[in-house]
């Protein structure tokens, strides 16, 4: 069995895994990172979205062996220094979640969207989240939350050295 070394939410794990082990099952069943849920078999729903080396990926469609040497951020590692990420806060403030099952993937996809486009229009937000399905909210408050987080992050980036701004 291949040996992998993966840094997940700041902690490095070394494990021997079956090649077929999906990254999402590695996170959930091996590492206990159960904040990342699974919603489909076909890469459609996006519930399992995590950041792999900074980019959003659907962890049900990546093998754990493929993550060898990578850095993975899940919803559980998004808050830094005990401070919630602005995207997490704005999802709360704008009531952008109901059952919360799509929320980890949605939040991570949204942070990735802002990394690419720090000031998206509503249409760009909707397009940027097309890979993440939500059955509860009708998306309206999710769009608002991303808009709000974008504004807050742009503001705080302007207030600090832009090179150090977190996106």
């Amino acid at each position: 069995m291949p040996r992998i070394s993966v840094k997940v939410d700041g902690v490095t794990y070394d494990d021997d895994v079956e090649p077929r082990l999906l990254l999402v099952h590695y996170l959930r069943d091996w590492l206990g990172k159960v904040g990342t849920p699974i919603g489909c078999d076909t890469t459609n729903c996006g519930a399992c979205t995590v950041l792999m080396d900074g980019s959003s990926v659907k962890s049900c469609s990546v093998l754990a062996v493929q993550a060898d040497g990578s850095e993975v951020t899940t919803i559980e590692g998004l808050a830094a220094d005990g401070q919630m990420h602005p995207m997490q806060k704005s999802f709360h403030e704008e009531h952008a979640l109901q059952c919360g099952y799509c929320t980890p993937g949605m939040i991570l996809a949204a942070t990735d969207l802002l990394r690419d486009n720090p000031n998206p229009s509503d249409d760009e937000i909707r397009d940027g989240l097309e890979g993440n399905l939500c059955r509860c909210t009708g998306y309206q408050n999710i769009v608002r939350a991303v808009r709000r987080a974008a504004a807050e992050m742009t503001e705080s980036a302007a207030a600090t050295d832009p090179k150090e701004a977190r996106v």
Partner: peptide, 21 residues
């Protein structure tokens, strides 16, 4: 009121049935 149940849902500190060990 923003919801009090959000805290765990936006941080992944959830307890879905499949997560139960």
């Amino acid at each position: 009121r923003a919801r009090k149940e959000d805290a765990r849902l936006i941080t992944g500190q959830t307890r879905w049935t499949d997560s139960i060990q």
